[in-house]
Every structure is written in C-alpha cells, then in structure tokens.
Design a protein around this nucleic acid. Structure first.
Length: 578
RNA sequence: GGACCAUUGGUGUAGCGGCCUAACAUGCUUCCCUGUCACGGAAGAGACCGCGGGUUCGAAUCCCGCAUGGUCCGCCA
C-alpha cells in the first residue's frame, strides 16, 4: 500500500500516470457493465472508472479502499469537481476496511440535522465542507503566527490552572487534590499574564490561547474557545491598530482573495450606537437610526416623557407591505430589549397613518412630510424610553431584522471597521454614582479625559477598540493602565475597597510598582474570524468537536458524574439532587 | 433564571380530531442497465408518531407536565 498522491490533486497533467490511491468510497454509480466510484480523501474526490465491474470486490459507501490504475482524460468533464477533467481507469481495487451503514449521508449536501451530525462528528468531519472549515481555521492560525513572528513577537504559553477571580464571567473550576477545598480556575483569557509578560520585559507577545467561560451558550458562543492573543509595549493605539490591520488584510487576502482597504474605518462607540443601535454594527447595509423626538413630542400620547429618548428607523417602500403579523413579530423583537413596543407611522399618498398617527397634530403630520421628507409608502418605526440603551439596542435589532427580511445583505462581502472610544464605565441602572467597568478595570482612560474621573466618570472614554466584521465582534483590546495612582482611582470608582483589591488583584498590581512599561494589546476570537471567513453563522461549524447549547458534548457525553473515589481524593461531596 | 420553536421508518420532512392499516424524499436490500457524476428503471424491507398523564365515542393531531435539541433575552469584566 503505497499511495502516490491525494485524490483531489489529480489534474490533466497527470494523464497517463499509473497511480495508487487510497480513500473512502463517497458514492457508486453502477451502470451494469460499467462502474463509477467517487473516491474521497482529505484532499478531495476523484472518479474511479471500472471497465470490468465483475472483477471488482464488493464496495459500499464509506469502505476504505485502495485503487490502482491509470489516469485518463474524461470525455465529458465534470465542472463541479476540481478533478473533474480526469478519471482513473481502475486495474485493481482492494478493500482495506469495511464500513457499516452510516446514519446519514457523508456529503456537503447531507440530510441530517446538526444534533445527529454531532453525535457522529467523526463522520460529519468527512464531509468536505467541514474539513474545509477546519483548514480555514488552521490557516488563520498559521498566518497569525507567521505575521507576528515576522514583527518580532514571541509566542509564550500562559498557565491553564489559574487563580479564580470573581470578576467577569463565571469560572470553570478545577479542584486541588493537594490542598483540599481550594480550586484553580481555567483561564477566561490570558489577560493578566500577558500584562505581566510586559512588566517582565518581553515587549511583544502572542499566543493561540484556549479560553473558558462558564456562561450560557449561543449560536456564536461556546464555553471553550480560542483567542488569538497579543500584547506589546511602547506602542500607541494607532500603532497597534495598524499592526493588526496588516494581519487582517493578510488573512482576507490569503484565505478569501479579498483586498481589504487599509487603513480600516474607525467609528466612535457613541456614533455606532447612534447610527446603528449596536456597538458591533453590521455596516454592510444602511437603515440607520435617527432621532425622531422633535417630530412626535409633545403629542396626544401621554406615555412619552420629556426626558425620554425617541429614536426611529425608516424603511422606504414598506408602508403597504408591512402586515399586522410582521408588526407583531417586530414588537416581540423590540420587547426583548426592554422596550414596551414599537410605534408605527406610514405615509399612503397624502395620508399619515399607523399606530401613532392618532396622537399627532396636523402640523406634525405635515412636518413629517415636508421637513423629514417622508415618502409615499414609507414606514417609520420608533420607540421611546428613558433608557438610551433600550432604545438603541432595541431598534438595532429591528434594523438587522429588516436587513434580513428585505435581503439587504450581499453574500461574500466583508466590511471591517474599528469601534473606538468606548466609555470607561457603565453606570448601574437605578443606582446613581455606581459604576461597572465597560471592559475591565485595567483599561486606560484617555489622557484628555483623566480630569473627568473626579467629576463625570460616565463621560470618561477609554483607549479601547473592537474590530467589527459584518456585525460580529471579531476581537477587541485596550491600552492598559501602567500608572499606580490612576489604577487605584479606577478601583475606588468601581467601589472596590483596599481590602478587595489586595485580595483579588494584589499579586497582579504589585508588579506595577517596579517600572511597568506602557502597553496594550488585542485578542481576536479565532472561531468568530473563522465563521466569517467560512460564511457560516454557526460557531460549531468551525470547531472540530463542539459543545451543544447545554454545554455538553453529544459525542462523548461529557460532563459526567465521576467515581466516588475521585471525589474522595478531592474531599468533595456532591449534594443529592432533588 | 426566562421566552419561543421543534421532536413522526436509518436520515430529513408532510400529515394538525375520524379518510392514518401514517404519506413523500433520501438512504438501504434485490434485479436490470457501458459514460455516469444528485446516474436511470423495477420491486422490496423499514415507524407501536420523544416520555408520562388528561380531554374525547375516537388523539401523531387538542390540553398539562417532563425530557431532549435549537433560536433568543438575561449573562458573557
């Protein structure tokens, strides 16, 4: 058994060669006196042609076989296959291993749902599209390493067994056997370690880092995932962004053949919220939000207060098309984000109708037509709330609903941009003077905003940046605080006592007393990037063995109860479930 | 923690109170077929309709509970 080449590599230039091929039987077409076999391996599929089927041993789907024969030019090429111009005229076929009937069809166009495929992931992975996704993912990693190697970065591995921190996401805990009652935490990210590497003088670090977060899952969120993580010293935010743009441009060029225009667009956080109702806007289409308050307040509707935010989305040509049923659907969408619902206005000829029309005066209706320029058959949907976040996020969701509904998203387009100038703090709703960190407490406030720390913390912006691609947050980072005094000021604003800080971060911030360099970094979500490059909206499509929404593995059935002896060794007792 | 949707031969769906002794596609088995490439043609096997209650003369179909899967909200510094 000596394979001469991969099945998917055969081309016209190989015609006449004697070859030995190995692989799986993807399909058979038996024409009686003539038998065709599609042979698949990791490189692709090629057609075997058996002129004497009676001499061929019985082969069925997914049998592993060895085929010897001669490459020939096909008279009728198959343009759906890279190898479609050639076939292999078979001399002999040997069955290497038989296969039972598989539970689903092993082909890109399969019949099974994801649940079934995940139970037999090893069969699912034989499908060329899945393998392709893994190749894309691997290519992103190899470009990452190559690019940052060439920029003088050092790959460093940071610990997997870490000190647990109550901040941020829920930790996955690992009990200590040596020290009963104590636990390690799996890393949520290598954040603190990479900063210590900067204090340690490494200057330029990167890592392909596995991260773990024990939070609920989503179509684009898994409990274990991989970050392409970097950190560097002595670079400005602009330098870091352009360094990383170079990386992204290579990724899109080498994997998708797309030229990304550099430098990338940068949009301020509050502008993103204003125009798109999202801090990760999908900028492949318009439908921007706008302020409608001057047109509809005050009105006959008493539920709208003077301090309320009133924002809207206008959709041309949808006034008549929008049905009661669709409006209900949109209202349900809006309510998810804390809105009470949506109001509608439409123009039909000279008439303004819709759910809010009855609250408006004739002058207001006229203004909609004249001043706002509302067109015939135009639909305006709007919402009001004292909470800006609710209005923005709610309408942001409506915006993307319409984009999907109206088919505004062109396939195979990539729109990359940086969202910058994130606020440093997020005020806690209903508790004035209380704040949580928007990113993390080590994020550096912008120099020009430092005076605001004492007076208006909610207005302080940070050196924080996210890379947004097609509406996905594909990565993000910040410059970090290296000044001891500013760090303490932030801690106090976040309501942390000296005691808290010492217990939670003492081991970390002590390092900053010994000459920490200015530093900052970024982390890309490898899966998110791979999803976008593969054109899928399901994160499981780019993970070899993903977890399901209950954070379980449908294949191995992890997690599971463990042997009492194991618990005994760890001095752990499990409460009996009700 | 919450909302919504789904669960029917191996696989994917249809059926939505009696025409169901459950349909279609695909896969599988057998036979025919020398240029197919989603091959084609013929015949056949394969399902107590997720589980447990209830309503009804009658339930795959309606109701309740549970389980599993998915999508979303909260959560994800």
């Amino acid at each position: 058994m000596e394979r001469t080449m991969g099945n998917g590599e055969l081309r016209l230039t190989n015609v006449g060669e004697e070859v030995t091929l190995l692989g799986w039987v993807a399909n058979r077409r038996n024409l009686g006196g003539l038998l065709f076999i599609d042979l698949r391996d990791s490189t692709g599929i090629v057609q075997l042609t058996c002129l004497h089927p009676e001499q061929v041993p019985e082969v069925k789907s997914e049998y592993v076989i060895e085929a010897k024969g001669k490459v020939a030019k096909k008279e009728n090429p198959n343009k759906n296959l890279p190898t479609g111009e050639v076939e292999v005229i078979v001399d002999s076929i040997k069955v290497i291993n038989k296969a039972e009937l598989t539970p689903f069809i092993i082909a890109d166009q399969t019949d099974a749902l994801e649940d079934t495929r995940l139970q037999y992931r090893y069969l699912d992975l034989r499908r060329p599209c899945l393998l392709h996704n893994l190749k894309v993912r691997a290519k992103v990693c190899s470009i990452f390493r190559d690019y940052f190697d060439s920029k003088g970065f050092l790959e460093v591995e940071t610990p997997i067994l870490n000190l647990s921190s109550p901040e941020g996401a829920r930790d996955y805990l690992v009990p200590s056997r040596i020290k009963h009652g104590s636990f390690y935490a799996l890393p949520q990210s290598p954040q603190l370690w990479k900063q210590l590497l900067m204090v340690g003088g490494v200057e330029r670090y990167y890592q392909v880092a596995k991260c773990f977060r024990d939070e609920d899952l989503r179509a684009d969120r898994q409990p274990e995932f991989t970050q392409l993580d970097e950190e560097c010293s002595f670079l400005s935010q602009d330098q870091i962004l352009s360094l990383n743009e170079g990386f992204l441009a290579r990724v899109f060029k080498e994997i998708r053949g797309v030229d990304i225009k550099l430098p990338l667009r940068r949009i301020k956080y509050w502008d993103a919220m204003d125009f798109y109702g999202s801090d990760k806007p999908d900028t492949r289409y318009g439908l921007c939000l706008f302020d409608l308050k001057e047109y509809v307040y005050p009105s006959g509707f008493s539920g709208m207060g003077e301090g309320d935010y009133v924002r809207a989305i206008r959709v041309e040509g949808q006034g008549k098309a929008i049905s009661r049923k669709l409006l209900d659907e949109l209202n349900a969408e809006a309510r998810k984000f804390g809105l009470k619902g949506l109001f509608s206005l439409k123009r039909e000829g000279d008439e303004i109708s819709g759910s809010f029309a009855k609250f408006l005066s004739e002058e207001q209706k006229q203004a909609l037509k004249d001043k706002l320029g509302m067109k015939d058959d135009e639909l305006i949907l709007f919402a009001s709330s004292p909470y800006r976040r609710d209005v923005d996020f709610g309408l942001g969701a409506i915006r993307s609903w319409f984009a999907k509904h109206l088919g505004l998203i062109k396939p195979n387009t990539f729109d990359l941009l940086w969202v910058v100038d994130f606020p440093m703090f997020d005020p806690v709703e209903g508790e004035p003077g209380k704040y949580v960190a928007e990113h993390h407490p080590f994020t550096r406030p912008r120099d020009e905003d430092l005076p605001l720390l004492d007076s208006k913390p909610e207005e302080v912006l940070a050196y924080a940046y996210d890379i947004v691609i097609n509406g996905y947050e594909a990565g993000g980072g910040t410059l970090r605080i290296y000044d001891h005094d500013i760090q303490w000021k932030i801690f106090r604003l976040l309501g942390l006592t000296d005691e808290d800080v010492k217990n939670k971060f003492g081991w970390f911030i002590d390092a900053f007393r010994y000459g920490a360099p200015p530093h900052g970094g970024i982390a890309f979500g490898l899966e998110r990037l791979s999803m976008i490059l593969c054109g899928t909206d399901n994160i499981r499509d780019v993970i070899a063995f993903p977890k399901n929404l209950s954070a379980g593995d449908p294949l191995s059935h992890a997690p599971s109860p463990v042997d009492p002896d194991q618990l005994e060794a760890l001095a752990i007792e499990v409460k009996k479930g009700e």
